[in-house]
């Protein structure tokens, strides 16, 4: 799973001379929070986020309504955008978790995806959260089971051989070290076309592993 697999390709973009009024309507009408500003053949020049649209009081001569409207109508995307040097970007071949780390590290919510300075897509929190859902098999129905196992080699093999014996498939999977039980891992599996009881019976026979949660889920 790389950035290029889950990013939004062909994102909505603006040019640096697009009026800010238009930028505003583009962002609100399409429900987007990040608008890359490009020029010269889709080359990234900057990024506009919702916060950039907020008026900066110190740039205004007065708080007169007419003054504000005049000021806004003259603003261009290039004036309010975050300049290229300040925009954090990612390349399409980074891993998804790297992209997620960038988001959390910088406390931002989206990254333009650039390839040699050309914008090829955008990846946002929404994309990552959707990827997370799909990773755990949300769109498909099946039995969702959480198995707690010790952190040592060969444990997963035991589990997978049981699944293989029963001829089951797996549509979603994730593993998490459990912070409250050091040395243990929780493994979440989504198994389609089986019943809860079947899974319960088959998995509970594995030594050292316990089922902490099992449910039929969609």
């Amino acid at each position: 799973m790389l950035v290029k697999d889950i990013m939004t390709r062909h994102p909505i973009m603006a040019a640096s001379d697009t009026p800010v009024t238009e930028v505003q309507s583009i962002m609100s009408q399409n429900g987007i929070r990040h608008l890359p500003v490009v020029g010269d053949g889709k080359r990234l020049q900057g990024l506009i986020t919702r916060q950039r649209l907020a008026l900066k009081a110190d740039e205004l001569g007065s708080l007169n309504v007419w003054e504000i409207t005049r000021h806004i109508s003259q603003l261009r995307a290039g004036q309010i955008m975050l300049k290229r040097a300040q925009v954090i970007t990612v390349t399409p071949n980074r891993t998804v978790e790297r992209a997620a780390a960038l988001l959390t590290d910088y406390k931002i919510s989206g990254l333009p995806v650039v390839e040699e300075e050309i914008v090829v897509g955008i990846i946002t929190e929404t994309d990552l959260l959707r990827a997370f859902q799909i990773m755990l098999g949300l769109p498909m129905s099946g039995v969702r089971v959480t198995v707690r196992m010790p952190n040592r080699k060969g444990e997963f093999n035991k589990l997978s051989s049981v699944i293989a014996q029963n001829g089951w498939g797996v549509t979603g999977m994730g593993s998490f070290p459990t912070p409250r039980n050091p040395g243990k891992y929780d493994l979440v599996l989504k198994i389609p076309d089986v019943s809860v009881d079947e899974v319960q019976e088959a998995l509970s026979s594995i030594p050292d592993q316990t089922i902490v949660d099992i449910r039929a889920a969609v």
Partner: peptide, 11 residues
Amino acid sequence: MASEITYGHTG
């Protein structure tokens, strides 16, 4: 056939 999974912006 399951519906095709789409990533990203759906607009």
